[in-house]
Design a protein around this nucleic acid. Structure first.
Length: 755
DNA sequence: AAAGTACGGGG
DNA sequence: GTGTACGTACTTT
């Protein structure tokens, strides 16, 4: 008697971990798996002696025993008290009880219980198992009370987390979305709810709440979905439906377990990388997943295949991972590896750190090399990019917090500029995690090129998810609150990167290439008459000189490095527009790339770019100018005639503070205050939309109107939007000597002919 | 002129 | 469970 299926979810329960297995036929099974989460404590003998009684008086059953574990930074073996807590639910209580004893130092104590479960048992999310001693024959839904308890040893693995190729269970998804899809449904009016499973869609009307709840329950009953996919489920839909269900007295059957509520996590606003982020409260289910498309960075970037790829590698439950940052996933991979290696995890107290001194700031912020590009339009330019430069450096040179300036390798070669040493004997935790990720990503990228259709999409999603892990792994190394961060490691990585980019430059220039621009891991090179093959050959030479993989990102028919707006004539690192030889294009730093630009401006500039990218040469570019001017004129006429819809004029911005905390009358501040006055609750980090009604109005409230409060008789500031369109056009035609003034003249001339 | 506000990047 | 990144563009005072 055995059950074969995929480990779908795990969370703490009364007698052990509740573990859901998605059976081969798609039927779910709930098991109870016996599990005693472990943490460690050190301290003087009299302190350790107090631990058993402290646990007992807190009402926690636990087994304690002395054992040896490794200290991360020194690598030394340390005697520690191992505390195995009998029930997963009691783990936080146990940690609190021991943590209160003065003089006790705790280790591996602040990870989530599912994380500990996966680390201690070797089981992993979405792994395929054969579970002995469980009867799957009944096929139906097992009820909690009948579920048998098994030990982790009953799980026979049929796949490994290291596998590049792996099968996944067939999952039934129910989609829930509100009609209209606004930027944030709680800012708008009530709309209809659309539920769809398996191609069947039902529209539920909010005016008859009881019917709505009953219909939703019926859908869940009939299809028994594994996944509830929502848009704005966390911020709005789920709490709203819960309230509705309570009001009409009919409970919603979200869970596969009958007597459990939803697992929630509070909403929060925080700042990161100078940006304020709002994360809605999480609403997670038992026995099925609630995934909110609009509250999941990883899902948003890499869809379900990417999410599951990372869940397997990071050993994090899917619903939790969906709502967390990539940094957390990276951290989880490192933690997992550390526990496997018997390394003690220091307690990570989130203490507010002291301000950095000016000198410290200078060191920290010296990042990758940045050149100022040579402003202008160039034909025949090659772009060479180092692939995954930072992670490759970290893996290749063994850059990790515990490998920096180790006592065991005094004669190790020095890091350029900083003179630090890197351990040559012990492989670092960070490289150990990164190396397989680099390999996996290379494999998926290759498979993506070799396949088509659904397979190609699958590999694309997986490689995208891994790309984000690699990108963030570097930032994480320098993040002072990261568990495995260390500023010297961060600095070593950027020092290597600068050294390698300089080496690449020194290889290219003697061969007659002129460096037009270079940025961290990319360089733009020009040599009259050079072909793609020449750039290919150059990249191979650079590869030899740097021992880092580099490839030709593309060969541009033409590329324009655009000038700064605030310092005309000077180049800015990330403002350029170019067409590759194969007809594709690359655009950075201009209006189409910005999320706060109204759709009208974005679409207009995109249309213009389409025209310009049809040109293979600068001569053809000049010939395309009239077409671009036609687009410009057309949009300005439509603006004047009031033919543009409000949604296309809406500016979307993230508010960085509560409406009342804004200091001046910036349009965003005025719009936010208007919304607050209308009773809409706004949190820092949320996005709002508004149109400019009269930019120059004396009364701030007349300048702008939120989209959510727009009446039927609205009007916009056509002059303001005309100016925006003109500027977006100037961005593109500037290199061809068209200023805003000249564009205005051209438009005036052509419209006077029309009228 | 100074202060306030927001955004991109990576592929 | 995450922190005053940095440089540019633009508006308001």
């Amino acid at each position: 008697m055995a059950l074969v299926g995929w480990l779908f979810d795990a969370y703490p329960a009364e007698a052990g971990m509740a573990v859901w297995i998605a059976g081969e036929g798609g039927r779910p099974h709930r098991l109870t798996v016996l599990f005693a989460p472990i943490f460690y404590a050190t301290g003087p003998g009299h302190v350790l002696e107090r631990i058993p009684s402290a646990l007992a008086s807190a009402g926690v059953a636990a087994d304690v025993a002395m054992t040896m574990r490794e200290e991360l930074l020194s690598g030394a073996a340390l005697p520690v008290l191992q505390i195995a807590v009998s029930s997963p639910l009691a783990f936080p209580t146990a940690v609190r009880a021991v943590g209160r004893i003065p003089g006790a130092s705790l280790f591996t104590c602040d990870l989530s219980v599912p994380q500990l479960f996966f680390a201690q048992t070797g089981l992993f999310p979405m792994g395929r198992y054969r579970v002995e001693g469980v009867d799957a024959a009944e096929g139906g839904r097992p009820v909690a009370a009948q579920a048998p308890a098994v030990t982790p040893a009953a799980f026979e693995p049929l796949s490994a987390p290291e596998d590049f190729e792996y099968a996944l269970p067939p999952l039934v998804s129910m989609r829930l979305r509100l009609d209209g899809d606004p930027i944030n449904p709680s800012h708008g009016r009530r709309t209809e709810l659309e539920a769809s499973v398996d191609g069947e869609a039902v529209v539920l009307c909010p005016d008859r709440p009881e019917d709505l709840i009953i219909s939703l329950n019926r859908l869940i009953e009939r299809y028994d979905p594994d996944v509830v996919l929502t848009e704005w489920g966390d911020a709005f839909l789920v709490p709203r439906l819960q309230r509705l269900a309570r009001r009409v007295g009919v409970p919603l059957r979200w869970n596969r377990e009958r007597h459990q509520g939803l697992r929630t996590r509070r909403e929060r606003s925080y700042t990161t990388y100078g940006q304020t982020v709002f994360t809605a409260a999480a609403h997670m289910l038992h026995g099925r997943w609630h995934l909110d498309l609009r509250n999941s960075f990883i899902y948003g970037e890499s869809e379900l295949a990417g999410l599951l790829e990372i869940a397997r590698l990071a050993r994090l439950p899917v619903q939790y991972l969906a709502r967390t940052s990539i940094g957390t996933a990276i951290s989880a991979m490192q933690l997992h590896r550390a526990i496997q290696r018997g390394i003690l995890i220091p307690w990570h107290k989130s203490e507010p750190e002291a301000f950095k001194s000016a000198e410290e700031l200078l060191i920290t912020d010296k990042g990758g090399l940045t050149y100022q590009p040579i402003v202008g339009l160039f034909e025949g330019v090659g772009e060479l990019d180092f692939s995954s430069m930072y992670p490759t450096i970290m893996a290749r040179f063994n850059v990790s917090p515990e490998t920096m300036n180790c006592p065991c390798c005094p004669d190790a070669p020095r890091v350029p500029e900083t003179g630090a040493r890197l351990c040559q004997r012990r492989k670092g935790l960070v490289p150990e995690v990164l190396e397989p990720l680099l390999e996996r990503r290379a494999y998926y990228k290759r498979r993506k090129r070799e396949t088509a259709g659904a397979d190609r999409a699958l590999y694309q999603q997986r490689q995208t998810a891994l790309k984000w892990c690699l990108v963030c792994s570097f930032g994480y190394l320098g993040y002072r609150n990261a568990r495995f961060g260390r500023i010297e490691a961060h600095e070593a990585t950027t020092a290597f990167s600068r050294e390698m980019l300089l080496r690449a430059k020194e290889v290219a220039e003697p061969q007659g290439y002129r460096m037009l621009h270079a940025l961290v891991d990319s360089m733009w090179l020009h040599r009259p008459g050079a072909t793609c093959e020449d750039y290919d050959a150059l990249s191979r030479t650079i590869e030899q000189a740097t021992n880092l993989p580099i490839f030709v990102e593309g060969f541009y028919d033409w590329i324009a490095f655009l000038p700064s707006r605030t310092h005309p004539g000077l180049g800015v690192p990330n403002r350029y527009v170019g067409r590759f030889e194969d007809g594709t294009s690359k655009v950075r730093g201009i209006e189409v790339r910005r999320s706060d630009v109204p759709a009208l401006i974005e679409r207009t500039q995109a249309r213009m770019l389409d025209v310009l990218f049809g040109a293979r040469t600068v001569v053809e570019l000049r010939a395309a100018i009239p077409q671009v001017l036609d687009i410009l004129t057309d949009v300005i006429v439509r603006l004047r005639n009031g033919e543009v819809r409000a949604v296309d004029l809406a500016v979307t911005t993230t508010i960085s503070r509560a409406p009342e905390d804004y200091k001046n009358n910036a349009v965003v501040a005025v719009a936010a205050r208007q919304m607050a006055r209308a009773g809409i609750a706004l949190h820092p980090g949320e996005r709002i939309q508004y149109i400019i009604t009269d930019a120059g109005a004396r009364l701030p409230d007349d300048r702008v109107r939120p989209l959510a409060l727009l009446g039927p008789d609205w009007s916009c500031d056509a002059d303001y939007y005309t100016d925006q369109v003109l500027r977006a056009t100037e961005t593109l035609l500037g290199p061809l000597d068209y200023s805003v003034e000249r564009l205005e003249r051209e438009v005036r001339a052509s419209t006077s002919i029309i009228s």
